[in-house]
Structures are given as structure tokens and as C-alpha cells.
Amino acid sequence: MNTQTLPPKPKVSIWKKIKRALIVLIIIAIYVWTFVGIEIEWDRALERISRNFGVVIPKLLSPDWSQLGKVSASMLETIFIAFAGTFMAAILALPLGFLAAQNMSGSKFIAGIGKWILSAIRAFPNLILAILFVVAVGVNAFAGVLAIAIGSIGMLGKLYSEVVESIDMKIVEAMEATGANKIQILFYGYLPQIIPEFLSYAIYRFEIDIRASSILGLVGAGGIGTMILFAANNREWNEMGLILLAIIIVVTVIDFFSARIRRKIV
């Protein structure tokens, strides 16, 4: 067999090459910056872990069942916080979702503002919101509800607006053609198309909010996080073990049912 040379590779434009080289350089620079900049105190950390490992891990794995009552009550409060917060967000996100949907607000500008508000809300980590609300309404679970509610509006509003933008306008037009008024169109044209997906997203957000609300207590916003804070400060690792177990079980159960309900709805 005669060894033939390959045909030339298709030309890559010089700009593309420069762009690629630039991206590689930037990535390298970021990593250099990262590893030069970070200061990890290995000695101290290793000394600690060698001392703590044998103590903390076994305790974590043998939960302190005497705290079951307290932990359950706390976990229940966490569920309340998440539920109330998600519910509020699911309602409050409606106007924002419609506002941010281009086919509803009718103007690119208004939709743009709506989208901007929503992504601004999303940029605030839940816990930061919780801190603000704790300052505002005091150290209690309601601060947590507000934090969850505001935090969820950002995501739900965005998802809602995407659903609304995907509405089949043909059905709406057909109804307009039959002389239906705006309210009728809303009830018969829009809502049947969007309600299942709205609900499904709200339930999905509830899954996320259960996780979120279980740490709110770390900044004083109620729920099981309060117990986590105490257990950690007092180094009550047996109690922490039980808390951990409670979170794992509750989250797993809620994820399971949420997934089933969502599959049924959509």
C-alpha cells in the first residue's frame, strides 16, 4: 500500500486561533491566580483532623435518640418555613413571570426590566436574604419564610416567564376570532396551558427550599438550622448525627413524592 499524505486540514481562521489561544491563556492564568492566592494552613488542619476524626465521626454515626422529640419538632418547623415560603413565592412570582414574558408584556423593554429584576433577586444567596430579614423582623422563623419566599421568586418568576413565552398563541388567536373577551381568553386560552407547568415548577422549588430552609437557623431564621448551630458550638456530635439523619430522611421522602406528583401533573 502506498503511503499517501493526508489532504490539508480545513483552514482555521487566524482569529479563531487567536481566540482559542487566548481562552487557554486565561484559563491558565485563573488557575495560577487561584493556587498562588489560596492559603491553606495544612499543618493546623492536619493536626486538628488527626485529633478530631476518631471522636467526631463515630459520634456522628451513632445518633443521640434522646433528642428525637426536639429534632422532629425542629424539622417540622423547617417544613413549615419551606412550605409557607414556597407558597408565597409561587403566588408572588405570577405577576413578575407575566411581566418578564415578552408575549404578555408586549414590549421588549418591559420584559427586559422584568427579567433583570428576577435575575437580580436570584443573585442574592438565600442566606444573605435571611440575614437581612432577621435584622428586619427579628430572630424567628418568619424571617426564614420571607427569605425563602424572596429567594424563590427569582427562580420561579424566570421559569414561569419561560412557560408563558411558550404558550401556543394559535389557540389564543382562535379564541379571539370567536369573539371571546380578555378574561375568557385568560381562563380558557392561557391557564389550561400553563397551570400544570407552573405547579410542577413550584413543587420542584419546594424540594430546593426544604434544603435551603434547613440551614436558615444558622443565621437565626428558624428551623433545624438553629439546632445545627447549637450542636456544632457545643460539639454535640451525637445530636448532629440525628439532625443529619432527619434531614436526609425528610429530603429524600419529599424528593420522592415531589417527583411522583410532578410526573403526574405534566
Partner: peptide, 8 residues
């Protein structure tokens, strides 16, 4: 709890 306060 395991490693003490820090970035690690």
C-alpha cells in the same frame, strides 16, 4: 468541626 476554622 473536623478541621477547625479555615478555607480547607
Amino acid at each position: 468541626g473536623l478541621f477547625g476554622i479555615g478555607v480547607l
